[in-house]
């Protein structure tokens, strides 16, 4: 069923867009970072594997962006001409890899893939059918990603030097991974997507938007995602903390398991605040588009089903 056939109230649409942007931006930006390992991975075989994971994630981003396109955007609005401040990926995705820090790629992938797996599970029964329809395809590929990360984690952890690299990566990345469960600050509707009768026009202005917590409530209340971020976050901690500890790795989670705001970085991405590395990355990936003065993005494949 085409999404456009469903009548959405402005609040419903805002909730839906917010969830889709979160999903798409996380995948796109993480893939962008993963491709940095192409030609630089430790062995030729591991190079091929991570390149494939990058392509999978990009393919997932493409599926989510495509649902936003059904709401009236095009690829240039969503990526190439988009204000970088309106990207909503968690900062986990955008951090550059310190040179040679393969452990960072593995820990990041592990933290992200477990979170994504949980999030996808709670999208399986999404009340928005187009989301539910796409989840299965993505889950099949994510299985490989999680196992890949776990396998590497295990191998690196059995080595002293490997363990030190892993611990440094956990220390650096864990707070940014917590950002994955922070409610997303909504982005105003693009003026071009507001219909003639003006429905939704009130949400073309940032100041008029409800706050992130309210939008998160709508996402769950409408059943676009069946579990709250708080629930997903708990499940995630229950899984990753014992696994990391079993490999001798410490996390910043206190003994009582209570996650406080202080553990999450101020610039966490979900709130529209990013690290300086994001500006550099954005400038780099849009470079050719701007240099050529392009006004559209070349499609090679058909629109996803």
């Amino acid at each position: 069923m085409a999404a456009t056939e469903i009548e959405l109230t402005p609040d419903q649409r805002l909730a839906l867009e917010t969830e889709l942007r979160t999903l798409a931006d996380d995948e796109f930006v993480l893939a962008e970072r993963y491709t940095e390992w192409q030609v630089h991975a430790p062995t030729l075989e591991s190079d091929l594997a991570l390149a494939n994971i990058a392509q999978d994630e990009l393919g997932h981003a493409r599926l989510w962006y495509d649902l936003l396109e059904e709401l009236g955007y095009d690829e240039t609005d969503l990526l190439w001409e988009r204000d970088p401040d309106t990207f909503r990926h968690a900062t986990l995705s955008e951090l550059p890899f310190p040179e040679g820090e393969w452990a960072d790629a593995i820990v990041r992938s592990y933290l992200f893939d477990v979170a994504e797996g949980l999030r996808l599970e709670s999208l399986e029964e999404s009340a928005y059918p187009a989301i539910a329809d796409r989840v299965g395809k993505i889950q099949r590929e994510e299985g490989y990603h999680t196992e890949h990360a776990e396998n590497w984690l295990e191998r690196l952890a059995t080595d002293d030097e490997g363990g030190d690299h892993l611990q440094a990566a956990v220390d650096r990345l864990f707070p940014h991974a917590l950002a994955l469960f922070v409610p997303t600050e909504p982005v105003p509707f693009g003026a071009e997507t507001v219909s003639g009768d003006g429905a939704g026009s009130q949400y073309t202005d940032t100041d008029a938007l409800p706050d992130a917590a309210t939008v998160e409530e709508t996402i769950v209340a409408e059943g676009y995602r069946t579990d709250s971020l708080a629930t997903l976050g708990e499940r995630w901690l229950d899984r990753v903390v014992p696994t990391l500890e079993s490999h001798g790795l410490r996390t910043p989670v206190p003994a009582d398991g209570e996650i406080t705001d202080e553990l999450v970085p101020d610039a966490c991405g979900r709130n529209g605040r990013h690290t300086d590395d994001w500006d550099t990355l954005y400038a780099d990936f849009t470079h050719t588009y701007r240099e050529l003065g392009r006004e559209d993005a070349t499609m090679i494949m058909d629109r996803p089903e």
């Binding site: 390149a51 494939n52 392509q55 780099d284 990936f285």
Partner: peptide, 25 residues
């Protein structure tokens, strides 16, 4: 490799990544 990042559309980026992957293969 730098043109994986600088490719001007999602599909081009995918294709470029796949191409560089093949060369390593």
């Amino acid at each position: 490799k730098p043109f994986i990042r600088q490719a001007p559309s999602i599909d081009r980026k995918l294709a470029f990544s796949a191409k560089v992957q093949d060369e390593i293969g």
